[in-house]
Each structure stands twice: as C-alpha cells, then as structure tokens.
Design a protein around this nucleic acid. Structure first.
Length: 572
RNA sequence: GGGCCUGUAGCUCAAUUGGUUAGAGCAGAGCGCUCAUAACGCUUUGGUUGGGGGUUCGAGUCCCUCCGGGCCUACCA
C-alpha cells in the first residue's frame, strides 16, 4: 500500500467557480483520489479556499460586508458546492486559518534565517480616495502608445503594449475612478528566488514524465531574459497574514501582510494540519504527510492545477520549501490542465457567460457533469464546452451505453427469473473470451488512471461498458431462455456481475451512480477487481437484488435549447 | 515585441515519440436483434493531417516559412 498526497489548486474566494475552474484542478484531482483509495492506497486529498488579496477585499466591499465575514460565507458556499459535485476532499481548508497564518510566518522566518529574504524600497501608486496602494492592473488611464482610454497600469488591452502605471495619461483608480493618486515609497520583502535558480533548475531537470505544459512554463521563467527574478512577498493590505518573522515581530513591516501567492500554497500544508486538528489528532498525523524526516519519505505527492498556476507551483512554492532548509516534501508530479472554453468563447463571470457550479447542479446531478467534464478534460490543449456535445455525450454514454445495459439486464432477469441472481448452467467459451477481453481492458484502464491520462481512462471505461452490450447481443439470453434456461441463467448471472464490476470501476467518475448500483445489487463489497474473472462471480446464485430506476435520463432538444439560451450571458 | 502550446474525418479526440494502408466515439448510410431508457449489435461512407518548401530510405511527427486559434510575459489570482 502506497501513500498518496494529492492537492488541488485552491479556488479563489471571490465568487462561485465555473466549470472550467472545476475541471482544471478539483475534479481531476478527485478522480485520482477516488481511484487511489479504491486501489487500497492511503490518500490525503487537500483543497481549500484562497482568501487573501485585493480582489477579496473588493468583493467584500461590493457585498457590503467585512472581509472576514464575506470570506466565511463564501467558504461555506464553495464547500457546499464541492460536496454537491462529490469532491472527496479529506479537508477543505481556508488560507485565512490560524494554522496557515502561523506556518506562513514560520516559513518567512526560516527563509530570513537562511538569508533569502531581502528588503527593498519601491515606489507604488497610492490612491487617497481608496485609502490603499493600487496594484498596477487597478490603475486605468489612456495608453500613451495607442490612445486607448481604458488601458491598465500593467498592459494596454487594446495594443497589448506592456506599461508602467506612470506611463498612463490621466491615470485613475479602477476601483473608485478617483484621480487623486500619488506615488509613495514603500518597503517590501523579496524572496531571493534568483539565489535558488540553479537548485530549482536542477530539480526541474530531474523530473521525468511531467506534462510538457508544466516543464516548458517552468523553463521559460527560469531562463527567459535575466533568468528567475526575485519576488515581492508582502503587500500593503489589511487582509492577509500579518508579516512576522516566525513568532517575532518584523520591524518596519507592522502594517503589511504577506502576498497571497506566498501564503496560498503553504495552505496545502496548513490545511493538512487543519484536518489533523479537526480530527483531534496530534501534529504527527499531518507531519507524516509533509516532513520527509517524519514519515513522508515514502509519500507520493501529486498536484493538480490549471496552466496559470504552473509558475507558482514549479518555482515559487518550491523556492519556499527548498529555501526553508527543512525537509518538507516537494511535489513528485504536477498535472496541469489547459482551459475549458464555453461555446466559442471564454467563461465570463462579469458577463454571466457559461455554466457555474451552482447552476450546473440546479440543472442536472453531479455525475452528468463529472462524466462530460472528465471525458473532455483539456489535457493537450484548450477544449470547448458546447451544449450539443454535452447532450450527445450524456445521452449516448451514460443513458444508452451504461444506463440501458443495467435496465435490460435487471428487467430481463426480473421477468424471467425473479429478483435474484439465477442458478444453473456453467460458463462457456463466450464467457471465457469476455473475461479475457475485460481483463485486458481493466488493465489498460488502470494504466491510464495511474498515469493520470484522464480522457484515455474515460475512453477505456466506456469501452468496458460497451463490451457488456456486445456480449449480451451475441449471447442473446432472450433466445436461449426458450429452449435452454440454464444457458440464459449463466448469461444473466454474469451480466448482473458485470453491473457490479461497472459500479466499482466507474466509481471514481460516477460516485452517485456507483452507489445506486451497488445498493440495488445489495453488494456491500466493492473491492477493486484485481482478478476480473473472480470479480465476475462475486454475486452468487440466489443473491437478491432490486431493479433500480433508470440510472440516467436523456437531455431533450428543448432542454438543450433552453439552457443554451439561458447561459449565453448578457451579451449573448 | 518575446516565449510556449495548438491546428488531424461534419463534431470531439487518438496515433506506442521518425516506421507499413493515419485510428476511435458521435453524427450519416445499410443490415440485424426484440431483453432494454425508440435502447443494443454488426457492416459501412467520410482525411492531399491549415498552406507552401526542406531534411530523410521513410514525416501527422523534425527544420524553415506563411496563415489561423490560445496561453504566459513575474504587482489579478
């Protein structure tokens, strides 16, 4: 039995996430976690909300609430939606937790002790009306290059020229519109990533089999221009982890907090402590996952994230870990995803374009979404959600191939043999061939799951479902029943066992459907089919079952048209 | 501007990393079956692999170039 530590990139707090966010990290991480648990491994699956930073403060202000209250409410909303999608986190923490606060301060202290923190004075734009320093992108003005009047302080969206906020003509706050801006000097802490460049480079080079998307982004940051740059890790904000050097105050930094990207990944560790604390376990319970000197040396650590998160997970966070000089666990494998687009464009929160997690669950149960999203995961390039494709996949794969197989087998059995696994007869050549075929397919499925090849795993799983229909068609129990009931009994006995096998194999993708099937079959034991042949005789003759309701319903053309219209956004 | 990814059948994707005749699913066509959610099975029509050039015995794969889509570019997260 192996020990697998799995983290999903932590979703930002300021609103409900859309399907692209879900499929980019949390959902595939859940698939992997469920699979590894099913194989009998010990899994720690961690996620959390990322609660600090300017957007959280602005979202809270917009909602008219204190930021702490806003974050607490949004955490509860996101937690509930995660549960709704059956995301099986061992802990869904909060980056604002006391555990993360202390751990973040601890890491900063260690980095300072190791000479990797440097103070630098900077000049930044301060807005008197807003009472805050403005990040570059929160400053708007006229582009000196093209004259576009809504250029941002970091870049002009119109002509794509990179800008400095002081370049803008007639600059104003993007928050309040105020032009009462001034440049102030402020001192910040910088993480000396440049000093760790060679070690990070060697570490990245040593990784084998990482997605090209992951390594190419890391390499670019390491080698582009002057190489890896030092990074500011503090901000002039109220909401965040107060800057401390371990437990000690940090002179000159009293009114500052750590930058959200410094404390967010540390929350992976802190959330594991939140888990241990919540379970009433001691520190050893979480440290054995994270400290290679306290038991984590045999842990395999896999991270899931969208491509926008890659630089922080390949460089910044490892710089924090390595720079601490402590034996903290470094990631073993990074699975990164491209983006999911919506019907020819991007998901847009501001325009209400696309499907968000709460809306999705209001329309259809989690399994429908899980299947489509995972079987179309944007692994090799950006992929696209269209309602036509969604309807076709759900109706064909779930309703016709899997759902209908369950119906035809259980209903045939009920009408000819009653609601119990039929007795009599002995398996023949056809059954032997099916078992051989399925054994190979299950092995391929396992291979794809272990390699985290999500789409390939889904394709193989579908083929396994289809094999049941092929078998049934050839074996034709409805014909055999007329003159050789024992032969029909053999076929149906095996087919009922196939349903149980499908439930077990499908559970990482379709947890609810799997539970429905296992309940209907009264099959408490859902052990992984290490031996397919043995697994297909798990339900013995005489074992009672009930015919479940149709597993999946079909999406009608009217529904599809309605949803297409409803989620097209304000500018549809 | 720079870097990276990407373009394969009407649609969504494969192709063991340069190796035979580029494969699946869906959609379309035909046949079969009647247990089942008008479901299932079998057969089958679709491709000058974005355009052009090059390297090679051999290119979807490598190089050059052009065209299209996308991401990143370090103070949004």
């Amino acid at each position: 039995m192996a020990r697998i530590l799995i983290t999903s990139a932590i979703p930002y707090i300021n609103g409900i996430k859309h399907l692209g966010n879900l499929v980019g990290s949390m959902l595939p991480a859940d698939l992997y976690a469920r699979y590894m648990r099913a194989r009998g491994h010990e899994v720690m699956f961690i996620c959390a909300t990322d609660e600090h930073g300017t957007p959280a403060e602005l979202a809270a202000a917009k909602a008219g609430k204190p930021v702490a209250e806003y974050c607490a409410e949004m955490w509860a909303v996101q937690k509930e939606l995660g549960d709704g999608f059956r995301l099986s986190f061992d802990k869904f923490g909060r980056s604002s937790s006391p555990q993360n606060r202390r751990l973040t301060q601890y890491f900063a202290g260690r980095l300072a002790e190791n000479g990797l923190i440097e103070e630098r004075a900077e000049r930044q734009v301060y807005s008197n009306a807003d009472g805050r320093f403005l990040p570059d992108r929160y400053i708007e003005g006229t582009c000196p290059n093209c004259g576009y009047d809504r250029a941002r302080g970091d870049q002009c969206e119109n002509c794509t020229k990179q800008l400095d906020p002081t370049d803008l003509i007639d600059p104003r706050s993007a928050i309040s519109g105020s032009t009462d801006l001034e440049v102030r000097e402020t001192t910040h802490l910088f993480l000396r990533q440049s000093a760790l460049k060679d070690r990070l480079d060697a570490w990245i080079d040593a990784q084998e089999g990482w997605p090209i998307l992951t390594t190419s982004i890391a390499k670019k940051w390491l080698h582009d221009g002057d190489g890896l740059q030092d990074r500011g890790i503090t901000r002039d904000l109220d909401w965040g982890v107060p800057v401390k050097r371990g437990d000690a105050p940090w002179p000159g930094m009293e009114d500052k907090v750590f930058y959200v990207w410094f404390d967010a990944p540390i929350e992976y560790i802190a959330a594991t402590k939140e888990w241990a604390d919540g379970e009433g376990k001691g520190d050893g319970a979480w440290r054995r996952w994270w400290r290679t000197d306290e038991g984590a040396d045999d842990v395999r650590y896999v991270q899931f994230m969208g491509k926008d998160n890659v630089p922080f997970h390949t460089l910044s966070f490892p710089a924090t870990i390595i720079g601490s000089g402590d034996p903290w666990k470094l990631v073993d494998f990074i699975k990164s995803f491209n983006y999911l687009n919506y019907d020819g464009g991007q998901f847009s929160t501001s325009q209400g374009r696309g499907v968000f997690m709460d809306q999705a669950l209001a329309i259809l149960p989690a399994d429908y979404w899980r299947w489509w999203l995972l079987s179309h995961a944007p692994e090799s390039s950006d992929s696209e959600f269209t309602w036509e494709n969604f309807q076709a996949s759900v109706n064909k794969d779930l309703a016709d191939v899997l759902g209908n197989f369950v119906s035809r087998v259980t209903k045939f059995c009920r009408s000819r043999f009653g609601e119990a696994v039929p007795e009599g007869g002995a398996p023949g050549a056809r059954e032997t061939a099916l078992i051989a075929d399925l054994s190979a397919r299950v092995r391929a499925y396992e291979g794809h799951m272990e390699a985290i090849e999500v789409r390939k795993a889904a394709t193989e799983l579908r083929a396994i479902w289809a094999a049941g229909n092929e078998y049934l068609q050839e074996a034709a129990p409805w014909a055999a029943f007329k003159d050789d009931p024992d032969r029909a009994a053999v076929i149906i006995r095996l087919s009922l066992n196939l349903i149980r096998l499908y439930a077990v194999l499908s559970r990482p993708f379709l947890p609810d459907a799997a539970t429905t099937l296992l309940d209907a079959l009264d099959a408490g034991d859902a052990a992984w089919p290490e031996d397919v042949g043995a697994a297909l005789s798990a339900l013995p003759p005489g074992h009672g079952f009930t015919v479940p309701d149709n597993l999946f319903r079909k999406i009608t053309d009217d529904e599809r048209a309605d949803w297409q219209d409803r989620f097209a956004g304000t500018r549809g």
